[in-house]
Amino acid sequence: MSLAAQSHGFLSPTGVEITFLLVGLVTLGAALVTVTTRRLVHAALWLVVALGGLAVEYLLLTAEFIAWVQVLIYVGSVVVLLLFGLMLTRAPIGPSPDADSENRWVGLAVALAAAAALVWVVVDAFRTTYIDLDGAAQGTTEVTGQSLFRGWVLPFEALSVLLLAALVGAIVISRKTAEEETGPGGTAPVTPPRRTGPRSTGNGRRGITAAASAAARSRATTTPATAPEGEPGPAPETSNSQAIDGEAPGKGEEVPAKGEGAAKGGEAPGKGGDLAAKGEDAPAKREDAAAKGEDAPSKDEEGEQR
């Protein structure tokens, strides 16, 4: 490409470049927080910042249609889906200390090596290449629509078939099977306490205010009924990612120490810390039932977003 690169100064950035750099720093910082934070919901919210920053970068590159599609699809739909996924898998609100795997240093080394190689190659290759942004915008809706429906009609239609297949596949995968509807065989002993238990424990666990203390109180009161049958069964499996390594007695010391268990810590130790810690698993099963019930609306919304 014989571009008129001589008119550009190397160290005299234009206003667009400065803006691009600042927004890029914000985007990169938000992305770094997304992959390093220990609070799972905060990771999803920082992902919103990163994706929104990328939309601004698209606007600066005069690709406005892509920018609005980015805002609509990613910020509006994908992040909402991710938040629903976090909610349905009972992700803790507070910091979870085992959010990163043990081999994160290997991952860090690989990522740094890849970053060094990529940045070096890219900078070396495109050192004297400039984008001319002064002409007509390259990504208006008119331009994008013309190119999409003149040159890319067949892939576009094939993509609609792919979206339909993905929609059907997501519904089929997340659908309850017939034996799950009639009553699970493996978790049959846990079913009666799941039905009798108050639904509000599932919400109160995430709530900050009075609902949390009420839920903790009700949890502590229902604990003697649920703990003997819930404990030897599948309870160690249903424990959340916060207690990977420890067995049931180890959980008793761990759970109130976390920020998520703040409301619990105020109420539960008065009624016996060990019982409350055991009861932590029994409401988990009930929450699982609540999560199953909320599964279908999320799928419907996913269909609407598409």
């Binding site: 550009h8 950035p13 234009t14 667009v16 470049e17 691009f20 750099l21 890029g24 985007t27 990169l28 992305a31 770094l32 997304t34 992959v35 990163a50 990328l54 970068e57 600066l60 590159l61 795997s101 081999n103 994160r104 290997v106 991952g107 860090l108 690989v110 990522a111 740094l112 890849a114 970053a115 990529l118 940045v119 890219v122 900078v123 495109f126 050192r127 290449t129 400039y130 984008i131 942004l133």
Partner: peptide, 22 residues
């Protein structure tokens, strides 16, 4: 605009995602 700005930002974002996956 210098093409290196979006290219470098894209490379760094990709490696950030790579670290997260690993």
């Amino acid at each position: 605009m210098h093409l290196a700005y979006p290219a470098v930002l894209s490379a760094l974002l990709f490696c950030t995602g790579l670290y997260g996956v690993l």
